[in-house]
Amino acid sequence: MESLRPAVPHPLRRRAFVAVALVWAVLLISAFVQAERSSDMTDERPATGDYAVVAKAGDLAIEAGELKLWMRLKRSEVIGAYRKSDGELVLPDDWNKSFNGRTPLEALKKEALSGAIRAKAKQTLAKRFGIDSDYGYRKLSAMLTAENRRRNEAKSRGEAVYGPLQFEETTYYEYLLSNLDLKLKQALGGLTEPDYASRIDEAANELQLSLVVDRDVYDALTAP
Rank of each mutant, 00 (worst) to 15 (best):
M1K: 11
H10S: 13
P11T: 03
L12C: 06
R13L: 13
R14M: 11
R14H: 05
R14S: 11
R15D: 08
R15L: 13
R15M: 10
A16Y: 01
A16P: 03
F17L: 12
V18F: 02
V20C: 03
V20M: 08
A21D: 05
V23I: 15
V26M: 10
L27C: 12
L28H: 03
S30G: 13
Q34Y: 00
Q34H: 03
E36N: 10
E36C: 11
R37T: 11
M41R: 15
D43L: 12
R45M: 11
D50R: 15
A52T: 02
A55K: 01
A57Y: 14
A57F: 14
G58T: 01
E63W: 09
E63M: 13
A64S: 14
A64F: 00
L67P: 07
K68P: 04
K68G: 07
K68Y: 06
R72S: 10
V78E: 00
I79L: 04
G80I: 00
K84A: 15
E88L: 14
L89C: 00
D93C: 00
D94K: 05
N96H: 08
K97S: 11
K97P: 02
S98F: 08
F99Q: 04
P104F: 09
E106K: 05
E106G: 03
A107Y: 09
S114I: 14
I117G: 07
A119V: 07
A119Y: 05
A119L: 07
K120N: 08
K120P: 03
A121R: 09
T124S: 14
L125Y: 09
L125G: 09
L125W: 11
A126L: 01
K127C: 05
R128V: 05
F129Q: 03
F129G: 00
G130I: 02
I131C: 08
G136M: 03
R138T: 06
R138H: 06
L144A: 07
T145I: 04
A146Q: 12
E147T: 14
R151C: 06
S156F: 02
G158Q: 08
A160F: 13
G163C: 10
F167L: 10
E169N: 07
Y172Q: 05
L176Y: 08
N179E: 10
D181W: 04
L182V: 13
L184V: 02
A187G: 00
A187T: 02
T192I: 01
A197K: 12
S198M: 08
R199Y: 09
E202F: 15
E202S: 13
A204C: 06
S210H: 11
S210V: 12
L211R: 04
D214W: 00
R215I: 02
R215C: 05
V217A: 02
Y218Q: 02
P224C: 07
